[in-house]
């Protein structure tokens, strides 16, 4: 399929299928690009360049932008949440590997995985409030619901650290297990779940002092969480095992379902209708689509190299090459499976 055909497909999606064909953004971390995928057509519509090593992306507090962190080029690319069009580039955000806004929208925090520091910014204008150097590969972050504390997993040292957002000081730094990565605060604000990528389990951690209070076996290489949206269930990717498990966090966490996803499953997102879970398969250059009701794989979409972050836009991306941005069409007729 040549570029003209891709453009025609993109155009037809824009003008005719906006109501049904929501778009998905996939970050191709090894080739400095992001793919825009048609959710309904389950095919890559276009592949666009972005700063090197994009890994994660996050919704802005006002819900109008999605920000892509390019770790090797120290910048954030902002896309319009509705159209997918590029809005601006925020420079001088060092190594924004994992990133997040506090629930009150006042703080923006990045985990600089390779540069070994945690940066706390005033979200308004991305003004740096404090840079905390900490050994051990800062990996993933989570906030308490009151927006007072940010929790950061330290993948190499096997610890979780808690920082006070207002003062940018360390509250505690505790060992939790081998290679902690994904971390999530449960809605009760009393339990943190931490995925241990160097093991086959997750642990429950007390956010007050970092004490490990529980453990649940899930699968080898437990890595990252995504909330199902009911305040109770969480999906967990297990990279080494090639498994996504569904965890019920009511009372003691327990595994209630699982689905095999080969190729190092990593980040996830759920379609706006809540019916499908999309999971990036880092090694296979694909995104798997899981029917949540049956927990079965129902589709797979080829994308770029080492797909990592995934995000559902709220409507069809216009995929225009505005602002002089070159379009690198990547899809082919044979892509559709």
């Amino acid at each position: 399929m040549n570029r003209l055909s891709i453009a025609a497909l993109a155009f037809s999606l824009v003008v005719s299928g906006a109501a049904r064909a929501d778009s998905v953004i996939i970050l191709n971390s090894d080739e400095a690009s992001y793919s825009i995928v048609s959710r309904s057509a389950r095919t890559e519509v276009v592949r666009l360049p972005v700063g090197r090593e994009p890994h994660h992306l996050i919704l802005s507090p006002d819900g109008k932008e999605v920000l892509i962190g390019s770790t090797a080029t120290n910048e954030l690319l902002s896309l319009d949440i509705k159209t997918g069009e590029r809005k601006r580039v925020v420079k001088d955000i060092l190594d924004p590997y994992h990133l997040g806004f506090s629930p009150d929208g006042k703080w923006f925090v990045t985990a600089a995985y390779r540069l070994d520091h945690v940066d706390i910014y005033h979200a308004d204008g991305f003004r740096l409030a404090g840079r905390i150097f900490i050994d051990g590969l800062p990996s993933h972050i989570a906030f308490d619901t009151e927006s007072k504390t940010v929790f950061v997993t330290l993948q190499q040292s096997g610890r979780v650290a808690a920082f006070d957002l207002a003062t940018q000081t360390l509250k505690w730094n505790m060992p939790v297990g081998n290679a902690p990565a994904g971390i999530v605060m449960l809605p009760d604000d009393k339990r943190l779940l931490v995925a241990l990528t160097g093991e086959d389990r997750i642990v429950t951690v007390d956010p007050k002092d970092g004490a490990v209070t529980g453990s649940l076996q899930t699968g080898k290489g437990a890595h990252n969480f995504f909330p199902k949206g009911d305040g109770r269930h969480y999906f967990l990717s297990n990279r080494v095992e090639g498994l996504v498990t569904l965890i019920d966090t009511k009372d003691e966490p327990k595994v209630v379902a699982s689905v095999r996803i080969p190729g190092g499953p990593d980040c996830m997102d759920i379609t706006p209708d809540g019916r499908e879970l999309w999971v990036t398969q880092r090694f296979l250059r694909r995104v798997a689509i899981v029917d949540i009701d049956t927990m079965k794989v129902v589709g797979s979409v080829p994308v770029g190299k080492s797909p990592h972050g995934v995000f559902m836009l709220k409507s069809t991306a216009t995929v225009t090459a505005g602002a002089g941005i070159p379009v690198r069409a990547a899809s082919t007729a044979g892509d559709r499976k």
Binding site: Q155, Q156, K220, G221, R239, V240, G263, G264, F283, L284
Partner: peptide, 21 residues
């Protein structure tokens, strides 16, 4: 992926070398 997940990944996981994953 098959070679990695069959031969390399289990070794890295077993010896706690996930930083080399």
């Amino acid at each position: 992926a098959w070679l990695f997940e069959t031969l390399v990944s289990p070794v890295l996981f077993h010896f706690g070398l996930m930083a080399w994953y």
